[in-house]
């Protein structure tokens, strides 16, 4: 019960902040919630299943472009376009999983990196439709969901909160199901899980599709709420970001992705006022985390304060 109270409490707190925050931070937090949803998806695969992907930008972009191209070229309404984004994410992550899960460890990392890079280059190659690096703006008129204008900051914040809340509770529920427990066991010792009679390949495949689809939901949501799709979101950098956020917040904790995204967002936000080389912060944090705090912030909380933190 404490567990559910904690996570529901965060959602209530974020709802209260909707009425309290000044415009600038209000807008930032909406963005953080969408990006944290992306991190939640990443965490399912990396934090709970123990598979380090360097290609999640491919799934985020599949959602973003599935939705965006659906609106732009197929003339879809936002809801079916969002669904198309989800389907694109599920198909792409399933396809990559079937290939990449034949490998493990370092090879898995490189394979995901390479296919994501191929996806990014493909977006550039078909620049006629995708507008390449420049990207395209999704018109305000086509971002009205059931008559609600998602470009309005208030609506946008609440929509981001619904997306984030859904992903958060979904991941909380998932990791406590028997299925989620098997994922954790695979992370700890895959061979032993197999010798307990579980089909580990099927579990990893499912984990990667769930993870990729959540990432795609975040991508599609990002495009709908902020009205822009560009190839940058498919670049290596956007595969590194969720890794960074999850590592910082605590891999294999339900709250970690949000905490990590929030910290990193404001760290980069503050530093970009000082220098254009804001990715320096990302690099330093990445090295420092691997060296000194591989558990991340919430991992430390779990270790020191609350062992049962999911």
């Amino acid at each position: 019960m404490r567990v559910y109270a904690l996570h529901a409490g965060l959602i209530v707190l974020l709802f209260a902040l909707h009425f309290l925050l000044p415009a600038y931070h209000h807008g930032n937090l909406a963005r953080v919630m969408v990006l944290a949803s992306y991190a939640i998806g990443y965490n399912i695969l990396f934090g709970y299943t123990g598979l380090l992907s360097l290609g999640h930008a491919l799934f985020f972009a599949a959602g973003l472009y599935g939705m965006g191209l659906g609106i732009q070229h197929l003339g879809l309404a936002p809801a079916p376009a969002f669904l198309l984004g989800l389907v694109a994410g599920a198909v792409v992550s399933g396809g990559l999983a079937l290939l990449a899960l034949r490998t493990s460890g370092v090879a898995f990392m490189i394979v995901t990196l390479m296919f994501a890079q191929a996806g990014y280059l493909t977006l550039l190659y078909f620049g006629t439709y995708t507008r390449g690096d420049e990207g395209f703006v999704i018109a305000q008129a086509s971002r009205a969901l059931w008559g609600i204008d998602l470009s309005d900051p208030g609506n946008r914040y609440l929509a981001a909160l619904i997306l984030f809340g859904t992903c958060l509770l979904l991941s909380l529920w998932l990791v406590r199901t028997p299925f989620g427990r098997v994922l954790v066991a695979i992370r700890e010792n895959e061979e032993r899980v197999r010798m307990l009679g579980y089909d580990t390949f099927a579990h990893k495949l499912a984990a990667m599709v769930i993870s990729g689809t959540i990432a795609a939901a975040a991508g599609a949501g990002y495009g709908l709420l902020f009205g822009y799709a560009g190839a940058t979101f498919a670049s290596v950098q956007y595969s590194i970001f969720p890794l960074l956020w999850v590592l910082l917040g605590g891999a294999g904790t339900v709250l970690g992705p949000f905490v990590g995204t929030l910290f990193m967002f404001y760290l980069i936000d503050l530093s970009s006022g000082i220098t254009t080389a804001y990715m320096l912060i990302a690099g330093v944090v990445l090295v420092a985390l691997t060296l000194f705090a591989p558990q991340g912030l919430m991992g430390e909380v779990r270790r020191r304060l609350w062992k049962g933190l999911p």
């Binding site: 370092v106 320096l280 090295v287």
Partner: peptide, 17 residues
């Protein structure tokens, strides 16, 4: 192997930036 990859990604950004 896995942690060194993450660390060299960090190193990449540090050197580049």
């Amino acid at each position: 192997p896995e942690r060194t990859i993450v660390a060299t990604i960090g190193l990449l950004y540090i050197i580049q930036q």
